[in-house]
């Protein structure tokens, strides 16, 4: 049962991610990525990490992707236009080179992982409660936690300033 769920969710995640990068319409890309995130959330539940699964949906699928969706809708982004004149960066040659590099990366990772001996996941591990995570988060990792709050504040202020329209110039 677990095995079948793993293969189903893994297939959904990989297919959705492939379609994200293959789709021309950016709206469909965003929605397919949400599907991929939902599949990953299911995988986290299988890995006995329900808290991570739920915050994956809340943060990634529920907040970040809504942000992407708003930007795609408001900018009314057209489906991707054909390549511009600068052939040296966007022509078929460099893009094929990029694809080859990614395939090389995949091959290297495959080789690295298959040289690990087959390790089974220990059975009977209880699922991680929110309490465990909370206790560790606020004791050992409290400094990092406070730093992320500063980070989020900086990101909020920064993105508002970057994205706002130019304020009208003062007339001298």
């Amino acid at each position: 049962m677990d095995a079948m769920l793993f293969w189903v969710l893994a297939t959904i995640a990989v297919t959705a991610s492939l379609l994200v990068i293959a789709q021309r319409n950016p709206m469909y890309s965003v929605l397919l990525l949400i599907v991929s995130f939902a599949a990953l959330s299911g995988l986290y539940v299988l890995l006995q990490a329900p808290f991570v699964a739920v915050i994956q949906i809340i943060i990634y699928a529920g907040a970040i992707m809504v942000l992407f969706l708003f930007v795609v809708m408001l900018l009314n982004i057209p489906t991707e236009e054909p390549t511009l004149e600068r052939r040296w960066a966007t022509g078929a040659g460099p893009r094929r080179f990029g694809a080859v590099l990614s395939a090389v990366l995949a091959a290297e990772l495959y080789w690295a992982i298959s040289s690990i001996q087959k390790t089974d996941l220990p059975a009977g591990v209880p699922e991680t409660t929110v309490k465990d995570i909370g206790v560790r988060l606020f004791s050992e990792y409290s400094f990092a936690f406070e730093l992320t709050s500063v980070l989020i504040l900086v990101a909020m202020v920064g993105s508002i300033i970057i994205a706002r329209k130019e304020p009208p110039r003062d007339h001298a």
């Binding site: 793993f6 990989v14 990366l105 995949a106 992982i113 089974d120």
Partner: peptide, 17 residues
């Protein structure tokens, strides 16, 4: 059953994508 290798493999595939 899925082993640790299968999860790492899946992760590698997603990273390459």
């Amino acid at each position: 059953d899925p082993t640790l290798n299968s999860y790492l493999m899946l992760s590698a595939v997603l990273f390459a994508i």
